[in-house]
Nucleic acid binder design. Structure first.
Lengths: 182, 182
DNA sequence: GTCTATAAGTAGATAGAC
DNA sequence: GTCTATCTACTTATAGAC
């Protein structure tokens, strides 16, 4: 089962990268938590970067698909609302949520790598598509913050024990949708 | 002029930490950009952490002062609007703004250090003071996002060449104030 | 597929001259 | 205050046995 170990490496690595940061996490730590040696990791991944990139590429293609879809739609309130919903669904999925937390906390890691650069580009393009040339600056900011609210919903209320994660996500969505057409 | 070199070290270090990340930046790089040797840095700072902490302590006390002030005020719309204004002013000041960008990009660095932990606490407390126990979750999120919009204003429109930084800040403030009492 | 062993390099930090 | 020189402790990565 070669895919099994490979996947475990990705999971453990992502977990540690989120917790401690990418640079601060050594391959030795990843290997130890997994109960293998460093050398074993090198059988599955060519370099340390490759572990992250293997995760980034999955996520990138999904965001690119979202951007392609968005560009095909008319720039209406309905389209924008649907984007927020689709984006929220992407964030929901366990693996993507974790990877986005990694991106938030490790913005500078591999910032010169094509895959990471492209990821940034796509995010900016998504935000850009939410507004039209004539829109005032406040509208642009509001719509950008709508997308961002979907992220923030997760970690903003991390001390909040009286609401479930579902409730928090729905509340974030409500705020985001409201921000879009204010 | 001992203060001069010390300050230059802080400036250069912060610049590189923002650009490349804390862990990814070596003392050698900082020293080289300054035209001195690593050993010289150790005359001014006991450890690498100390360079960041010397910056953090200043910001921390300013944020703590803001929190103290906030707690003394009645929880009215006027108080909340005034907080956003004061927070915006803090962020404006070059040094604060840079340090907050450092915090955004290096959330995991020194996450166990008391000063950094306290910084997080104060930020969460500020957000917490913006809402009251009875407020719905959407209100809490909206008000948190108001504070956050002040940050985002800076980097969200980094490709935006048609507006000045002043215009962007004012627009961010308008969106933030509107979010507070929606 | 995973191991041992090791190469080759860099990190943070210190001692002591000037 | 800043330097040279150096220490120790890692790091990523590879070679080759099993």
């Amino acid at each position: 089962m070669r895919e099994d170990t490979r996947t475990k490496i990705q999971d453990v690595a992502l977990e540690l990268f989120i917790e401690q940061g990418y640079e601060a996490t050594s391959l030795r730590e990843i290997a130890e938590r997994l109960g293998v040696t460093k050398a074993a990791l090198y059988y599955h991944f060519k370099t340390k970067d490759d572990i992250v990139l293997s995760l980034a590429e999955r996520r990138l293609s999904e965001n690119e698909a979202l951007l392609t879809w968005l560009k095909e739609q008319p720039k209406t309130p309905e389209t924008r609302a649907e984007l927020i919903r689709r984006y929220g669904e992407l964030l929901l999925r366990g693996d993507q949520k974790d990877f986005m937390r990694f991106m938030e906390r490790n913005q500078t890691s591999m910032r010169h790598h094509p895959t990471v650069l492209r990821m940034r580009e796509v995010m900016f393009a998504l935000v850009d598509e939410l507004a039209e040339p004539g829109d005032p600056l406040t509208t642009r900011i509001r719509r950008s913050m709508a997308l961002f609210t979907m992220h923030a919903g997760v970690w903003l209320s991390q001390n909040d024990t009286e609401h479930t994660e579902d409730e928090r996500r729905e509340a974030a969505m409500e705020v985001a949708l409201d921000l879009l057409e204010r």
